[in-house]
Amino acid sequence: MELDCGVWLSLGGFHERGRDWPTTQRIYNCHALLDPAGHLVAAYRKTHLCDVELEGRVTMKESSFTNPGTEIVPPVSTPAGKLGLSICYDLRFPEISLALRRAGAEILTYPSAFTVPTGSAHWEVLLRARAIESQCYVVAAAQTGKNHERRTSYGHALVVDPWGAVVAQCREGPGLCYAEIDLDYLHRIRQEIPVHGHRRPGLTSMAGWRRLQGWQRCREPLAGTVKSRAGPRPLCFRPFLPKTQQQDALRAPPSPCAAARRVSPLFFGVPPKPLHCCGGAGAEGRSQALQ
């Protein structure tokens, strides 16, 4: 088809037998991108497998016959723009779309086979969300019709622009829709609302650092605070206990927080310096708690 029509084809998902087929007996769900000469330019293997159970409606266990892919494929340069590849259930994970956006993607593709219950509730809103947060065009081909006695696919293939507007959509049953990809419009939106430059990954890495260090923030009001633009912020953190220790902690008498750490809205990933304890522990106790 690409040779006859001179077009690029985004095709997915194909069931692919990988090199590990003899040992795993599981396939990969593959999204293939072909150029007008029929060459395979890129292949993405679905990284998130759909294991869901909607009581009385839909049960899927993709992991029972599919291996998850292990990597995201860099965006591919095409005449329409830089194309990022995903598949179906990946749509529920914004981390992939944001990673592709950081890598230069201008168009995100999601060939899919949503069920009727999940598609009618989530299909359009998820695609629009991915387009808005990444400021990319989103192109989503969709399987439609009855797969077998226990499953029917939702269909409704559509295209969303970087503003989040649906610019083309198929309705019930098989169909074809067209949309114009306007990269000048895309870059104007990114310039007017530069969310990519406003992201603060240090905030999430700080939370991850605290959790790895075994600390969580106190929830009760505290006397010790630090001033910030957002108003007073409590200084106090207490040890985070694994679930296996939570019952013992509940039976133990309440104790004041062992130590405190600096919290700032401008903090980016550097381990904070200890501040004053909010009461109850001496210097020795604070030193032990911070080790």
Results as ranks from 00 to 15, higher is better:
Gly164Leu: 03
Tyr185Arg: 14
Phe114Ile: 02
Glu172Lys: 08
Ser64Phe: 07
Trp21Glu: 02
Gly81Ser: 03
Leu183Ile: 10
Tyr178Asp: 11
Arg92Ser: 13
Cys236Ser: 10
Ala103Thr: 05
Ala80Phe: 09
Thr115Val: 04
Tyr137Cys: 01
His48Thr: 11
Ala230Gln: 11
Pro272Arg: 14
Ser264Gln: 11
Lys273Met: 07
Ile132Asn: 04
Arg286Val: 14
Asn147Ala: 14
Val73Tyr: 01
Arg211Trp: 13
Arg101Lys: 12
Gly18Met: 03
Thr204Val: 11
Gln25Glu: 13
Gly18Gln: 06
Cys236Phe: 04
Glu62Pro: 01
Leu203Arg: 13
Thr66His: 14
Cys30Glu: 11
Arg238Glu: 15
Glu180Arg: 06
Ser64Gly: 06
Pro111Asn: 14
Gly56Cys: 11
His48Gln: 11
Leu49Asn: 12
Leu235Arg: 12
Pro75Lys: 06
Asp182Lys: 02
Gly285Ser: 13
Arg261Trp: 12
Asp4Gln: 15
Pro117Gln: 00
Thr115Cys: 03
Asp4Ser: 09
Glu192Thr: 09
Pro22Arg: 12
Glu180Gln: 07
Gln245Thr: 03
Ala42Arg: 03
Cys136Gln: 01
Ile87Met: 05
Glu192Asn: 12
Leu100Asn: 06
Ser287Cys: 10
Asn147Asp: 09
Ala131Gln: 07
Phe240Cys: 08
Leu108Glu: 09
Ala42Cys: 04
Arg26Lys: 10
Gln135Lys: 06
Ile96Phe: 08
His148Glu: 13
Ala80Asp: 13
Ala129Glu: 11
Pro36Tyr: 15
